[in-house]
């Protein structure tokens, strides 16, 4: 048996926004903030609460780039491939990150759920191109080598965290 899903967090979000169809996106955003993705269990629940078909919710969730139906990694690395970053060579950085983590365009999250690597069309930090973000913190003027160093540092953090958790 699957453990039953705890909807209390969803209830809090619903009461914050009100059960209005127009708040679907804000509600999904908060759900995603809470769970780091949109758990499937949430859809029938929201469908009932908002009076909107599940297919419609799924349709909205899959339209917008920022929603994820799959659990993401502890560190979400987003490589900006906006024009400014692109002309200042953001793709080699992306390739290096993927190589370091064994990821690809289709496979964005590592098996241990440590890292997710995505591209983003522009972070609006073009003055510092090329940039990447890790969990929304901006890292400016990146190079492939700096990216490798960053991964090493984040791996160490991850290891320290799991040690802390098991201790």
């Amino acid at each position: 048996m699957q453990p039953t899903f705890d909807y209390s967090a969803v209830d809090d979000i619903l009461s914050l926004y009100g059960k209005k169809e127009s708040n679907i996106i804000a509600i999904l955003q908060d759900v995603q903030e809470r769970y780091h993705y949109l758990p499937r269990e949430v859809f029938p629940y929201l469908s009932g609460a908002l009076g909107v078909s599940e297919a419609r919710l799924y349709s909205v969730a899959t339209f917008y780039e920022n929603f994820s139906l799959e659990a993401k990694g502890r560190f979400v690395i987003r490589v900006c491939d906006g024009t400014a970053c692109h002309v200042r060579k953001s793709i080699p950085i992306l390739e290096r990150l993927r190589k370091e983590l064994g990821l690809s365009e289709a496979n964005k999250t590592t098996a241990d759920r440590g890292f997710t690597v995505e591209t983003v069309s522009c972070l609006g930090a073009c003055g510092l191109a090329p940039v990447i973000t890790v969990n929304d913190q901006v890292y400016p003027a990146m190079t492939p080598d700096k990216a490798s160093e960053l991964i090493t540092a984040l791996r160490a953090q991850l290891a320290a965290e799991s040690e802390g958790a098991s201790a």
Partner: peptide, 26 residues
């Protein structure tokens, strides 16, 4: 404030209002 959710097309007026209404930004 309505936060976008990652769709360039929402810069287009009618897509933007659709998005504020909680719909696909088409």
């Amino acid at each position: 404030i309505a936060r976008g959710a990652g769709a360039f097309v929402c810069g287009e007026g009618s897509a933007l209002t659709a998005s504020i209404e909680g719909k696909r930004g088409m």
